[in-house]
Design a protein around this nucleic acid. Structure first.
Length: 474
RNA sequence: CGGGAAGUGGCUCAACUUGGUAGAGCACUACAUUUGGGAUGUAGGGGUUGCAGGUUCAAAUCCUGUCUUCCCGACCA
């Protein structure tokens, strides 16, 4: 007897293999012939499109416009801001030839587009009346990563990058935080991810930024995934690129800049947070298909009823799929679980005679008998319940993996024995942060602004200034 | 980039040690019978073994290089 389910490696046996199994078995992704350059298949892309449409609306509601920038950056342009180039140079891909001829100046494929935007901003910003300038683009970028993994770390990255310019520092900082909040709300409310939000340390911030804010998600195995960032640049790039505007006092001034982005990595976070040994589990608010309808047998009345239910659901905006294949019911049930459809509705002759269907929820695999009249209300109720349950389940697990250390010994013990995040009161010195990295392999995730530090830094004993999370990362 | 493992029809593997030019199960196609947790029968189609080079009368098999995947580490979104 064939048993495809067994082909998914058990999550608790080998988490890494389980993850790639789920990615491939649920038809989200496939490898291409280039390392780290993945094929996002229609089902995976549908999830991205859904993320894209929700976020794009949020960006537009907050006044941002989409545009498209070039994908090549001449070397001289990349070199303009020195902190930025130092951060990115080691991981860019270079184009050296065009049409068989060696190029006068080599060009990199954009690893991020700050310099392209700055080069353009220089031409179009003249006065305070041109500000704020609120742009966003949906595109791919290239970073030559050494280790790659579907969705979590690839060389070609599908993402969104917002770039904005402002009259004042305060306004730019407010923009940085506003966009971070949009990401946070999206990830909590739609992706059901109980994320931790905060500021990156000096050591971990984006190359060229004054401050980097981050959304950190915790995966099932306790690893951290940076799932979105928002940067405040001050006017460092503006100075380097000579972007100036005439302010309200008739004086030339450098504008203040931000950038922010999220990637298809969020799909990886969904999998590593919610999915299980049966396959993918998707929160209803992001699932491309909400209800999978499975007719059992070939009874025409059953088929007709299934079509009728699908129509009613679709009319209410609930997306459906009808599995009309010749497969056996058992196969269809398992397939439905691998694909992570939040609900499936089974209907056979026996149900039909009783005026009932069987609804099975993907998160708990619980089977529920429902009469025809109650289908619509029950489906809405269950979808809401699944959404809430996934968030609560993830939150509970995350909380069970949050630790606090007051001494270095305690930190080392926790780092060795437990998986998850470890919180400390930290003095803020990079040397203490590096000390922890060397001793335990854990890096700082973020400084939380929700709590104030107390006591002393467990490394150097100086007064602690920041509550900071550390963890292992993808 | 360092250490380890692996690449053979779509998938999981066999044949490799002891070179003689590829085989099974699943999947796929057709027909029939089936249908409440991964159906059954019959008949088919599909690979020259990741790629390149070398050794040899002869290479999936031996040698070299390279690419890709996975694991561990370093680096980084």
């Amino acid at each position: 007897m064939a048993d495809i389910v067994k082909e998914i490696t058990k999550r608790d046996v080998d988490f890494a293999t389980w993850y790639t199994d789920v990615c491939k078995k649920s038809d989200l992704v496939d490898y291409s012939s280039v390392k780290g350059s993945m094929i996002i298949r229609p089902y995976g892309y549908a999830i991205w499109e859904k993320m894209q449409s929700i976020l794009d609306q949020e960006f537009k509601k907050t006044g941002h416009q989409n545009l498209q920038m070039p994908m090549f950056i001449p070397e001289s342009l990349l070199n303009v801001e020195k902190n930025h180039v130092a951060g990115f140079a080691p991981e860019v891909a270079w184009v050296t030839h065009g049409g068989g001829e060696l190029l006068e100046e080599r060009m990199c494929v954009r690893p991020t587009s700050e310099v392209l935007f700055c080069d353009h901003f220089k031409k179009i910003i003249k006065s305070y009346r041109d500000l704020p300038l609120l742009y966003n683009q949906w595109c791919t970028i290239v970073r030559w990563e050494k280790t790659t993994r579907p969705f979590l770390r690839s060389r070609e990255i599908l993402w969104q990058e917002g770039h904005t310019m402002h009259e004042t520092k305060e306004e730019a900082i407010a923009e940085t935080k506003r966009m971070l909040k949009i990401y946070e709300d999206f990830q909590r409310n739609y992706l059901a991810l109980p994320v931790i939000v905060g500021k990156k340390t000096e050591k971990e911030k984006f190359a060229g930024a004054e401050a980097t804010y981050t959304i950190e998600a915790m995966m099932y195995n306790g690893y951290a995934l940076q799932n979105g960032t928002s940067h405040y640049f001050g006017n460092g790039f503006a100075k380097a690129f000579g972007i100036e505007f005439l302010n309200r006092n008739q004086k030339l001034e450098y504008p203040y800049q931000t950038s922010w982005g999220v990637t298809t990595r969020m799909i990886g976070a969904l999998i590593m947070t919610h999915s299980d040994d049966h396959g993918l589990v998707l929160p209803p608010k992001i699932a491309p298909i909400l209800v999978n309808l499975i007719p059992i047998g070939k009874d025409e009345k059953v088929i007709e009823k299934i079509n009728e239910i699908a129509k009613l659901l679709e009319d209410k905006g609930i997306t459906t799929n009808i599995d009309n294949s010749e497969k056996s019911p058992g196969f269809k049930f398992a397939e439905s679980e691998v694909k992570g459809y939040p609900l499936r509705i089974e209907l056979g002759s026996r149900d039909y005679e009783n005026n009932t269907v069987t609804i099975v929820r993907r998160d708990t695999l619980e089977k529920i008998m429902v009469t025809f009249e109650d289908i619509m209300s029950k489906v809405s109720e269950l979808l809401d319940d699944i959404q809430a349950n996934l968030y609560n389940r993830a939150l509970e697990r995350r909380n069970s993996m949050l630790y606090e250390a007051v001494s270095l010994d305690e930190f080392k013990y926790l780092a060795k024995e437990k998986s998850g995040f470890i919180k400390i009161n930290w003095c803020g010195d990079t040397s203490c942060e590096e000390h922890i990295k060397e001793e335990t392999g854990l890096k700082s995730r973020c400084i939380t602004e929700e709590e104030t530090a107390t006591g002393k830094c467990p490394i150097c004993g100086k007064k602690a200034l920041y509550k900071t999370y550390f963890g292992r990362q993808y």
